[in-house]
Write a protein that binds this DNA or RNA. Structure first.
Lengths: 109, 109
DNA sequence: GTGGTAGATCGAAAAATGTCGATGTATAAT
DNA sequence: ATTATACATCGACATTTTTCGATCTACCAC
């Protein structure tokens, strides 16, 4: 395997690993299903029912993997899915019988 | 989120987690690129250059996640990719610049 | 300014995962 | 039957990940 290919494999493994935790996958699905296209940390905390520091940690993992983008809105931390990064996910989501509402619109390219 | 949906999320997270390790992702790509459609454990050991027990462990993780199927061939353990499980992967593989040879044939449906 | 709030970061403890050598098990060859 | 081979499983240790409470930082309201 070529050297630069191995780099890409490592990066891909990191992407998969980021999604390979139940809480993080739930967070991504939650954010992707938001009508406004994203949500604040506190919303995710309420949804996942975990300590705020725990949620912040998981969101950071997702941002580092390029799955999420974040941007400060005053005092609130706004998080949203990076669509290009999720075009890889879109195929897979058909696995879930009931599709996530409002997901298709932004995810299909 | 519905109860049974959460079950599916957990299962999906397990699938992602299985692919979320460099060695395991390399193993999957290696097996998928085999002209014969699969390989023996010893081949994977030679490819990954890790202890046999380590490779066996990772292959087991992939089998448990449904990514690989295994079947004893006499004394040898034959492993191959489960195509349906990888139709989810196919989109993603476009991420790797150079495509894996012989992969398209079996993976595109 | 002061005080309050949202969230990031730190530090520590618990849990899960990765790794290997050693051993076990089954098949194949002689 | 004995021996050799391929692989799975076990046991132990090292590393990484997960989780939380506590603290720190930045912004906002007053």
């Amino acid at each position: 395997m070529a050297m630069d290919t191995k780099v890409k494999v490592n990066e891909a493994a990191r992407l998969y690993a980021a999604l390979g935790h139940s809480l993080r996958l739930q967070a991504v699905l939650f954010l992707a299903s938001q009508p406004r296209g994203g949500a604040y940390v506190s919303d995710v905390v309420a949804y996942l029912q975990r300590a705020q520091s725990t949620v912040s940690h998981h969101l950071k993992v997702l941002v580092d993997a390029g799955v999420l983008a974040t941007e400060p809105h005053g005092n609130w931390g706004w998080y949203q899915v990076v669509p290009t990064r999720l075009s890889q996910l879109s195929e897979h989501l058909s696995l879930f019988g009931t599709s996530v509402p409002a997901l298709g619109a932004r995810m299909v390219l």
